[in-house]
Design a protein around this nucleic acid. Structure first.
Lengths: 363, 363
DNA sequence: CTGAAAGCGCTAACAG
DNA sequence: CTGTTAGCGCTTTCAG
């Protein structure tokens, strides 16, 4: 009986995992030597080190992260806050950040938080204050100021991805919304469109308003008037792109081109146009934003604006690691240019084609 | 100078967060009292408790999870292992599990692991062995036996979601693939289709083979022969659905209906059919699997098979929590029935319609 | 090159 | 009702 107890585990731990002490005991060295051998800090005899490594391997040793945290050691774990996994664009962002983190030798854990604006997230703060993560990457478009302030006050470095609104004491890395939108609208104007509609996303993220400004400014600078009936409101989901497009196409003077604040809504737009028996791009041109995977797949290919997600993710991860290394807060706002990707969903409008035909004859 | 140092923080901690000791010091009580007041375990005078709670609130106290872990306490955090966030189906699973976890008062952290089969995941084991999570929910279709064995050997309860292959000492919760596929194919047969193609997904997950068996068995029981040229291989992505459909439609005797092993491929199938100038569902019927959000959106609506993700997620979370409470390993395999969702992408084949017309006249 | 001691923040267990 | 002690697994510091 006694022997059984003794043999079960050195310290009557509740069936816990192997610790440095277990390895130390087996090898007849001290725990400290094991720690040194494993971490590479300090000096250990070659032989000893080899033995330790072998034993650790054999005993399937996994260091207890929590113990490290308690010693203020780096965990090499970054946290990422997201509000939604079902959005293809967010999924791409997650994927990009994950790859960068791994390349930088960091692990990534993702926290999914409710994205209702105004809802405080004590759950989030619990995880953050808990010391698991060295740093934090926040990709929550609808994050409230309260939550962000709490993060800024927190004692781990953080960075915001694609956060459009200002007034936060945190670094921001984002793709350009304003100029991206201008490129999209300019492309449509260049094709000859004069009635261009805009399907806005929810204003909460601050991204849609920036895209809308790009849209408006571009039209105004081209000498066109902003027609309020051509600006409709969505929520970044396909359903609203669909509904609002049906409404737009029912106008007395319907648009010849529709620019949606994101690709998901643009896909809804495509469906609605076709349901009305119109052709894309012959009858209506459509442009989206984000370049989600579906954009290149949905026929006839969605013209859209791509943000350099790899650059954004890389910069975000670097910022966090840099803040960690230098212990200095980063508050830069880095913006990467977006780029128009032209596919099959845009073409000259029927009218313009007629006109250009006539013009050509006149000239 | 001295006074500054002293006032900065009781124990010269590196600008760390507030601890029970900080609260205790401020209130002139012991750390233990604070701990008791906060946790609700043990007895504390009402007044004292109120004071502690107020102070904790005011000082923005966040308990250090890692310290709890070290005491073998429950963290109320569940971990979820996923290999991919960009798949709409996985995104739905994540979302469902997250909701169930929150409802059960648990936090969820998501670990994104590379999904190349055969790649061991020491990173994963690091996080798991680190003691952050009380339990683990694994939704990694391509998980290798090695990884799963490591998880099974680990000392936290785990459960597998939608893992098709057997031989693992872990509980599995899944949607029915075999019968779901049979429903899909039977639906097509009922409509009059006789040449039904199957676009398989990668075999690694074990899900696609089950769906294929359902397909084959259903055809055979209907007295039809399996035509190997109608069974093509994909990888669960739209591109392969697209490519393989182009090939299928080029056959001497092309199929009148195509059943894809998942919705993403089915969407590629739809595109390919239309690119060939054929109509859906008049010329070709299409059925998918999973009922991703896009399925109800892509015109004319994708007929597909839906798994009860909420039930699956709920059962998975319950299993983990139950294992945690009872300290007994669960090794059940729970399967939930899948359900055919009929939308616009399926209709009788042109030939059958002719036949049925003739038949009706004859009758 | 190696060991012993101490303590990170928290909480069971035992005193008051 | 409250305080003291001890220890979870690890690593920093100081002694061998």
């Amino acid at each position: 009986m006694d022997s059984m107890k003794a043999s079960s585990r050195s310290k009557a731990r509740s069936e816990g995992s192997v610790t440095v002490h277990d390895i130390a005991a087996k090898l007849g060295v001290s725990a400290m030597t094991v720690s040194r051998a494993l971490s590479g800090n300090g000096t250990v005899a070659k032989e000893t080190r080899a033995k330790v490594l072998a034993a650790a391997e054999a005993m399937a040793y996994v260091p207890n992260l929590s113990a490290k945290v308690l010693k203020n050691a780096r965990t090499q774990v970054l946290g990422m806050l997201v509000s939604e996994t079902r959005s293809p664009h967010i999924a791409q962002v997650i994927s990009a950040v994950s790859q960068c983190a791994v390349r930088a030798g960091q692990d990534l854990v993702i926290f999914l938080v409710a994205d209702e604006p105004g809802v405080e997230s004590p759950r989030v703060l619990k995880l953050l204050g808990s010391g698991i993560c060295d740093g934090l990457i926040v990709a929550v478009p609808k994050a409230t100021k309260n939550t962000l302030d709490a993060i800024a006050r927190g004692n781990i470095p953080a960075v915001l991805i694609n956060y459009g609104k200002g007034g936060v004491q945190l670094p921001v890395v984002k793709g350009d919304n304003y100029d991206g939108a201008r490129q999209a609208v300019q492309h449509l104007l260049d094709l000859g469109h004069r009635r261009v509609a805009f399907v806005a996303g929810s204003t909460f993220s601050g991204q849609s308003p920036e895209r809308q400004r790009g849209y408006s400014d571009c039209l105004i600078e081209a000498g066109l008037e902003i027609d309020p009936t051509l600006i409709v409101q969505g929520e970044f989901h396909p359903a609203q792109g669909y509904e609002q497009t049906l409404a737009l196409l029912s106008l007395a003077k319907p648009p010849t081109a529709i620019f949606a604040a994101n690709d998901e809504m643009a896909i809804g737009v495509l469906d609605a146009v076709r349901v009305r028996g119109l052709k894309i791009p012959e009858d209506v041109s459509v442009v989206g934003f984000d370049d989600i995977p579906a954009a290149s797949f949905v026929p006839p290919g969605l013209t859209t604006v791509r943000q350099p997600l790899e650059d954004i993710a890389q910069t975000a991860v670097s910022s966090v690691l840099n803040q960690l290394d230098t212990r200095a807060k980063d508050v830069r706002r880095v913006e990467f240019p977006s780029r128009l990707i032209v596919r099959g969903s845009t073409a000259p409008p029927a009218v313009a084609r007629d006109l250009s035909g006539r013009n050509r004859k006149k000239n």
